[in-house]
């Protein structure tokens, strides 16, 4: 099993568009959408759901008002201001620390399981997919990303797939780490903006820590060629192969409007710009596939 993770420091730089395009080029592949905060891959791939399961987060305090005497100890001791005037719990403030459960002299407080989101196993026109949906106020956790990856592995087993393609979460925190550990290759997508190079550096620090082979790609390189050159120079110095520079192109939006990958869109639109864009991605995928088989 070979696993590729696609990450970028910041959201909104085209990671999902690229993952979707790869999915229509690769064969024997399972998709793992680990961008659980705003899971957009399903909007293009239209998954048919096979199985949905709840994922539990930190627990939530609950006060039994029949036992509560209103002494207020819980409200005083709670550091998160989660106990309201009427001795109910504000679920958005409660961090499940359980201090109230031991502080209550009447044993009126207990912890209840809290559902933080759903993990979904699906089938798409390009193969199986594992993804997730977070509930309002819940945060992506390493645990949730890990469950998505475990389901992707199971799907790969069942459908005899060779590759797992991971659409990573934004940032460099725990969810990203959970998305890249144990992968064979990481593709960092960058863009030539004020924060682009900074985000790229942080992402590369992370993959270096884990000793995962890393390659990079610049999206919308032509909106600021000077910044793109800076990114190129940085990659050269850091020994990170820069595999492709994608131009700023409206085809990405046009394809999205049709709920298609850019590869599918280029195939039927016949627009020369779209075909050229699709070819760059096709070459990029070729490079990645080669590197993925090399790492074995």
């Amino acid at each position: 099993m070979r696993q590729l993770a696609i990450i970028s420091g910041k959201g909104g730089c085209g990671k999902t568009t690229l993952t979707a395009a790869f999915s229509s080029l690769s064969e024997n592949t399972v998709l793992a959408d680990c961008d659980v905060d705003a899971s957009d891959l399903p909007l293009i791939l239209k998954p048919q759901v096979l199985k949905t399961e709840d994922c539990l987060g930190l627990e939530l305090a609950s006060i039994d008002l029949k036992l509560c005497t209103g002494c207020g100890i819980c409200r005083e001791i709670c550091r998160f201001g989660a106990v309201l005037e009427n001795f109910t719990i504000n679920p958005y403030s409660c961090e499940g620390c359980a201090v109230c459960t031991v502080a209550c002299p009447e044993n009126a407080v207990s912890l209840m399981p809290r559902v933080s989101g759903q993990v979904i196993s699906s089938i798409t026109r390009f193969g199986p997919m594992a993804h997730a949906k977070l509930d309002t106020g819940e945060e992506a956790s390493g645990k949730l990303v890990n469950v998505v990856r475990k389901r992707a592995l199971e799907l790969a087993d069942r459908h005899s797939c060779k590759f797992i393609l991971i659409d990573g979460p934004p940032g460099t925190g725990c969810p990203v780490i959970a998305a890249i550990t144990g992968t064979d290759l990481v593709l960092v997508l960058s863009e030539p903006t004020v924060s682009g190079l900074h985000d790229l550096k942080r992402a590369i620090e992370l993959t270096a820590h884990f000793r995962i082979p890393t390659v990079a790609c610049i999206n919308k390189y032509d909106i600021n060629e000077k910044k793109s050159l800076e990114i190129e120079a940085f990659c050269r110095e850091a020994g990170i192969p820069l595999l492709a520079c994608l131009p700023y192109a409206d085809i990405t939006t046009e394809a999205m409007m049709e709920e298609e990958t850019v590869i599918e869109y280029a195939a039927h639109s016949g627009d020369p710009g779209a075909v050229e864009f699709a070819n760059i991605i096709r070459n990029l995928w070729g490079e990645i596939e080669m590197r993925l088989s090399d790492t074995s």
Binding site: E95, E139, C174, T181, E205, H209
Partner: peptide
């Protein structure tokens, strides 16, 4: 250690 330090989950 060969894995980067991090905060675990980011719930806050």
């Amino acid at each position: 250690s060969n894995a980067s330090t991090h905060s675990g989950m980011n719930k806050s």
